[in-house]
Design a protein around this nucleic acid. Structure first.
Lengths: 110, 110
DNA sequence: AATGATAGTTACTTAATGTAACCTAGTTTA
DNA sequence: TAAACTAGGTTACATTAAGTAACTATCATT
């Protein structure tokens, strides 16, 4: 068999989603807008430093919006754009695959 | 909005697919079995070192098979298992998303 | 003035990748 | 006989990405 030539757009999409934490951040935002600390808390091993980088990348890609509410203290919410919401079917398929093919993790003893 | 609790299996699947090169290797194998050098050549920036690591991980996960043909010189082919083939819909969705939402790259001048 | 909240950033450490040279085994070529 | 070739990797070293903990800025409350 021959290797397959890849579409540059497909390649770019895979590269984006392959960046550590990207898919998790998008998944969390599928539930609705979240603030920085909320995302941080929902992903215990994600550091604020990397979260900050990813949010900037995703905003630059047009996948998320950053909305500043000038209250005191200031509140900033991150939410998905239409382009970001459109990633949902991908995550859905990952969910389908994982529930069909990955073993149920051990449950703690009663 | 509240952060969403994640299923451990979903989490594991995302972690796997987020590892650099994993999705590309699976994509290439969707076209049929390939040898080490073929995968290496189809993914120009993937080093033999990391390819070797990823193939071992994917085999350990039950996503690919390693088949040794005792010819001379020996030929070794990597192919997807049923579990690996079942990843196709995920990559398909990534393809759909990328062709709908990512810009067509500039084409070189005529 | 000190304390607290939100939303980050910075300096430093550790882990993951990339690069290039090398290894092993069998085979053909000089 | 030995040098060279092929396939399928591995090893040592350099670079980049990610993790950790402390710190910054702004405004408000105690």
């Amino acid at each position: 068999m021959e290797p397959t030539q890849m579409c540059p757009r497909f390649e770019r999409a895979v590269e984006m989603l392959s960046k550590r934490w990207t898919s998790f951040i998008v998944f969390q935002l599928l539930g609705g807008p979240l603030r920085f600390v909320q995302i941080e808390q929902s992903l215990p091993n994600l550091s604020g430093k990397v979260l900050s980088e990813r949010l900037k990348e995703l905003e630059a890609e047009g996948i998320i919006n950053r909305h500043v509410y000038p209250e005191t203290p200031v509140r900033i919410e991150y939410s998905l754009t239409a382009k970001g919401l459109a990633l949902a079917p991908i995550l859905k398929e990952i969910g389908n695959w994982s529930s069909e093919w990955l073993p149920v993790p051990c449950t703690p003893e009663a």
